[in-house]
Nucleic acid binder design. Sequence first.
DNA 1: AACTGCTGCAACCGCCGTACG
DNA 2: GCGTACGGCGGTTGCAGCAGT
Length: 319
Amino acid sequence: MGRSPCCAKQGIKRGAWTAHEDKILINYMKLHGVEGWRSLPIKAGLNRCGKSCRLRWMNYLKPDIKRGNISFEEEDLIIRLHRLLGNRWSLIAGRLPGRTDNEIKNYWNTNLSRKVHYHQNEHKYSATKHNKYSKATPLVKTSANYNKSQVMTKVVRAKASRCTKVFFGSEPRNTVNVNSVAQTGRSDRTSILLNGGSQADRVKDNSSSCNFMASVEEGEFGFSEFLNADFQRVMCEILGNDVNAECGEDGDQNNGADEQESNDHNPLLSSSCDHIDEAPLMSDLEDVLDDWNTSTPQDCFTQLDVCLDLEALASFLDS
DNA sequence: AACTGCTGCAACCGCCGTACG
DNA sequence: GCGTACGGCGGTTGCAGCAGT
């Protein structure tokens, strides 16, 4: 028995929303908020599918939504985030306050993909009047940051995964079923497991859903180096940051002078340097580093709630 | 003015993950 | 453990408006 449709198809209005319908939905949401999209149309008196109501609200009617006039900074950020995350529009939109995934997706499909494609294949196309790509404006980024990010072409097709756990252990995890993109398989190495997969899998088995694994030699380099040296450089390139950038503004996460000083030279830890707020991610990893340095292996378990480009990370560690 | 093709984008569709009974 | 309901997401479609002829 298949799943029932989200709403009765017959008699449901489709197509563009009218101002009257918008008003009804806005008034209902003001009074009740989100209580369940399926039942909303009936309660609100809208002859619409619940999904349609949700889409309309989330993409157009919700307060604080910015529409149109995507700035240069936002465009640059979209390009860099897309380079990092791929078509994860909701993730990208999450980094652009007031922007919706649908708008970014449309903007990408109608503007940026053409630009990027055009500039990746510039030699293939002549900018004739009727050329499909002639509308693309030069993809010239004045900041050095973008030029850096262009270097990391190999991570463009990354499949971003939501990582909720990072395991650190000095013992090899040979029994782990790893769908790894950078697995070395060496048993004499320390395993760094970044787990993805479904929540159910993660609860069921901490390691079975691991989709990324890197291994490093014991003492080869510690996590401080991992965070502060090449890894940081590569992540900076991926994110388009300048490794040597000076960050003058205080970040909210900074608790003390030492930490502030450290963050001043660590663009990944200072969200004020960039619109890409990776500070929570890197701060969490730094906490993990503390655990790593001070705890026994079995204690070295820290749960994170971060998004990583696993393939980008894997590409670096594998190189 | 009429026609044609193109573009942008709002909206829809189908799939997937999660929650829940 | 299984089936269902539901929300969320990414891909795709369809149409209004615009530009070119």
